[in-house]
Amino acid sequence: MTVNLKRLAGWALIVGTIVAAAGYLAANLLAPGHGDEVFRYRLWPLFEGIAVGGDVVVALGLPVVLAFAGRAPRLHVIGYCGVFAALLMLNIGEGVVEGFVKPYLAAHGGIPRDEPSGFAVFEGVALLCLAVGAICLGVALLRARMLPRWIGVALPASCLLGALGLPRPWFLLADDVFFAALFAIGVHAVRGRAEAPVPSAAEPAAV
């Protein structure tokens, strides 16, 4: 049985983005209160865990974006690496802290005001990877002209929305735009046909 990895990765992006977006929306729209109060919501770890699970599935399917490289393959690879690193560091790494560590601390004496040493550097590197990755990947997709132009515009636009510091719950708009672009890439990967095999020397191409 032949497995179409491109379609499989496309389905991973589709399912992962839906699950992750649903988890983030549920956690941030249903949790009462503001600030550290949300971590005391009893269903917060469940919803955040769903979101992190969706992020893991997205990470598994993200390599499919390399199938749409065109005129700027190096820029495409840089963009993919930046987005992948940010997905691991922010959505998955920091998501585990937000979903499980902080609720535990909130129920056992409160969350310390001072962040752990080096955490700000970690976040700074992750945000830099996200900005560079989203911009490079968006430009590469626009130059490749293999996908709708709005996808190439949406990736860097999501970073701009995140930088605006929108209030709750509007700050989720940045993630939703980002996930919408990845969802669309997954749809095109699933709908795309398998590449035609390259004829060998013993089988010359028909004229």
Results as ranks from 00 to 15, higher is better:
L166H: 11
L75H: 02
H34M: 14
R71W: 05
G162H: 03
L25R: 09
I50H: 03
L164P: 11
P167Q: 02
F178C: 00
G152I: 06
G79P: 01
F122K: 06
V139L: 09
V57G: 11
L60T: 07
A51K: 10
Y41H: 11
P204A: 07
A163S: 12
A22M: 10
R40C: 04
R191V: 10
G70Q: 00
G124V: 00
V96Q: 01
F84S: 05
T2C: 08
G10V: 01
A86S: 10
I92C: 06
L8T: 11
F84H: 12
G61R: 02
V65Q: 02
M1Q: 15
P148S: 05
G152W: 01
C159D: 11
V153L: 14
M146P: 08
C136P: 03
A174S: 13
C136E: 07
N4D: 15
G138L: 01
H188M: 10
G54M: 09
R145V: 07
L5I: 14
S117V: 13
E115Y: 14
L130D: 08
G124Y: 04
V125A: 10
A180C: 13
I18N: 08
S158M: 02
V64N: 08
E48K: 14
V190Y: 02
A31M: 04
A189Q: 04
G23M: 01
E94Y: 15
G124L: 01
A189H: 04
D36P: 12
V15M: 11
D55W: 15
R193C: 10
G133P: 02
D55C: 15
E203K: 12
V52P: 04
G33A: 08
V97E: 10
A12S: 15
S200E: 14
L5C: 08
C81V: 14
S158E: 02
R149M: 11
G162E: 06
L166P: 09
P169E: 01
G93V: 07
F178P: 03
V52C: 08
V77Y: 10
E195D: 15
F68Q: 05
P103E: 06
F84M: 11
V187S: 03
G109M: 02
A181C: 07
D176C: 14
L25H: 07
P199A: 04
P32N: 09
A184R: 05
A163G: 10
E98F: 14
G10A: 00
G93L: 03
G124A: 06
W170G: 06
A181G: 07
S158P: 02
P156R: 04
A22G: 08
G93T: 01
L130W: 13
P32F: 03
F183L: 12
V190F: 02
L25E: 10
V19Y: 00
D175L: 15
A201C: 12
V187G: 06
R168C: 11
R74L: 12
V15R: 09
L90A: 08
M146F: 10
G109A: 05
P167C: 10
R40E: 11
E48L: 12
H188C: 04
S158R: 05
